[in-house]
Simulated scan of single mutants.
Amino acid sequence: MAFTKTTEQASNYNHLEKMTVFELLNNINSEDKTIPTAVNKVIPTIEKLVISIVERMKKGGRLFYVGAGTSGRLGILDASECPPTFGVPHTMVIGIIAGGDSAIRKAVEFAEDSTTQCWNDLIEYNINSNDTVIGIAASGTTPYVISGLEKCNEKGILTGCITCNLGSPLSKVSQNPIEVVVGPEFVTGSSRMKAGTAQKLVLNMISTSVMIQLGKIKGNKMIDMQLSNNKLVDRGTKMIMDELNISEKEAYMLLLKHQSVRKAINNFNNGN
Results as ranks from 00 to 15, higher is better:
Leu203Trp: 04
Glu112Cys: 06
Asn245Ser: 14
Tyr65Glu: 02
Phe64Leu: 09
Ala251His: 04
Leu63Lys: 02
Lys216Met: 14
Ile127Asp: 04
Cys164Thr: 06
Gly160Asp: 11
Thr115Ser: 13
Glu150Ala: 09
Gly140Lys: 07
Ile136His: 03
Met92Ala: 13
Val210Cys: 07
Ser30Gly: 07
Thr4Ile: 15
Phe22Gly: 06
Pro143Thr: 06
Lys216Glu: 06
Pro169Ile: 10
Asn220Lys: 15
Pro184Arg: 08
Ala111Asp: 12
Ala103Phe: 05
Ala137Cys: 04
Ile146Phe: 05
Ile265Gln: 05
Ile76Pro: 00
Ala138Ile: 02
Ile217Gln: 04
Arg56Met: 02
Lys58Thr: 07
Glu112Asn: 09
Asn176Ser: 12
Val133Cys: 08
Arg73Glu: 12
Leu201Ala: 11
Ile46Ala: 04
Gly72Thr: 07
Thr141Ser: 14
Ile35Ser: 02
Ser139Phe: 00
Val173His: 09
Gln175Glu: 15
Glu150Lys: 15
Gly67Lys: 09
Thr188Asp: 11
Ser102Ala: 14
Ala137Trp: 01
Lys263His: 13
Leu166Met: 12
Gly236Val: 04
Val181Asp: 01
Asn176Met: 04
Ile28Cys: 01
Asn272Tyr: 14
Ile146Val: 15
Glu250Asn: 12
Phe186Lys: 01
Ile246Asn: 06
Met211Ile: 05
Asn270Gly: 04
Glu250Pro: 03
Leu74Glu: 03
Lys200Val: 05
Ser129Arg: 13
Gly99Glu: 00
Thr159Tyr: 11
Ala264Asn: 02
Asn128Gln: 09
Ser191Gly: 01
Gly156Ala: 05
Gln213Leu: 13
Lys221Tyr: 11
Leu24Ala: 06
Arg262Ala: 06
Asn40Gly: 15
Arg262Pro: 04
Asn204Cys: 07
Ala98Ile: 07
Ser114Gly: 11
Lys5Cys: 02
Gln213Phe: 10
Pro143Met: 08
Asn120Ser: 10
Glu8Phe: 05
Pro177Asp: 11
Lys33Gln: 15
Ile123Cys: 11
Ala137Leu: 04
Thr91Leu: 07
Gln226Asp: 11
Asn26Ser: 15
Ile223Pro: 03
